[in-house]
Design a protein around this nucleic acid. Structure first.
Lengths: 168, 168
DNA sequence: TCCAAGTATCTCGACGTCAAGATTTCTTGG
DNA sequence: CCAAGAAATCTTGACGTCGAGATACTTGGA
């Protein structure tokens, strides 16, 4: 089946026949698919009363394991946002009762953000919903194709991931 | 080579051994790779004095072919932003001298946004830079792997693309 | 002990986006 | 030919993010 990138590439070949636009066949599809996935996730999460950014923070804490707490700084590196943004997010999640701030007993500058019971339940429910949705999207592919795709994508992502990229 | 998604999946398997998190192997990689690509593009474009959103608008006009003009409404559907955002973008691009607004001769409600000579040159230069960068990223893969990857991604994107998704 | 440099978090102002509504112009049925 | 609705664009206010700087605490060396 044809997609938007096929049309995009055809347009460039018409307007700039001198250029080799083949890289777009892969990387433009990655970007567009990511955009579609963002939208789909937003819808899936809203069924559990969560925004995507809330899911990111809550699941980072959830994955940390009991007692489900991390410093704001650790959350920064996991979610790739800046410190001002994280302060704001923690404020709002606190107001919703999904996390709570506690003083770090070993460093008086520090704070520990801890998942509440409610926060943990919401994160778990939203994750289950997300996985169900993603399984539907992936139903387009055979098991073998899924594995191949994951492996190919790993080749492209790994150089970035092992390159140390942390915002302020 | 290992990547962040391997670590993510391992963490979930430890914390939620009851769940099948395999879909993340594909779709989380797509999202993360897209994020890395956004950053890389931002850097590549800045060498030509452009922001990513400026590139999006300028290249939409460029692909339209001579005389390189589209209505704001057509630009909306191509770039997937809302009308208020597009008005703002056209304002800023006009101030930079990269596009100009002209009255639509056949509809007095309408406006046509046209690429200036300068705008066209910038778009062409930035596209060449982008393609060079993307070729480097894809050097991780063989020609065969690239083709396979593009085909697999098309399977996943096509259902979304042929689903009519247009914002306000 | 004391100070300088480093670290952790928060505060604040600027900016871009969105969503809803306002305005102007076109279209169409009666 | 007109009135009502549709269409195209712009305006406005709220919101989340960023980035730089402020504040408070810690650490290591003199």
């Amino acid at each position: 089946m044809e997609d938007e990138v096929d049309r995009l590439v055809a347009a460039w070949r018409r307007e700039r026949p001198d250029l080799d636009v083949e890289p777009l066949e892969v990387l433009s599809r990655v970007s567009r698919l990511a955009r579609h996935l963002d939208r789909a996730r937003r819808i899936a999460f809203s069924e559990h009363g969560l925004e995507p950014w809330e899911f990111d923070v809550l699941t980072s804490l959830r994955r940390a394991g009991a007692p489900y707490q991390l410093s704001p700084g650790q959350l920064l590196t996991q979610t790739l946002v800046t410190s001002g943004t994280m302060t704001n997010r923690i404020d709002r999640l606190t107001k919703k009762g999904l996390v709570e701030r506690q003083p770090d007993p070993s460093d008086r500058r520090g704070v520990l953000v801890r998942l509440t019971r409610e926060g943990q339940d919401r994160a778990d429910q939203a994750l289950a919903g997300l996985l169900a949705q993603e399984r539907e999207i992936l139903a387009q592919l055979s098991d073998r194709q899924r594995d191949d795709l994951a492996a190919l994508l790993r080749h492209l992502v790994a150089p970035f991931d092992n390159m140390d990229n942390v915002p302020g």
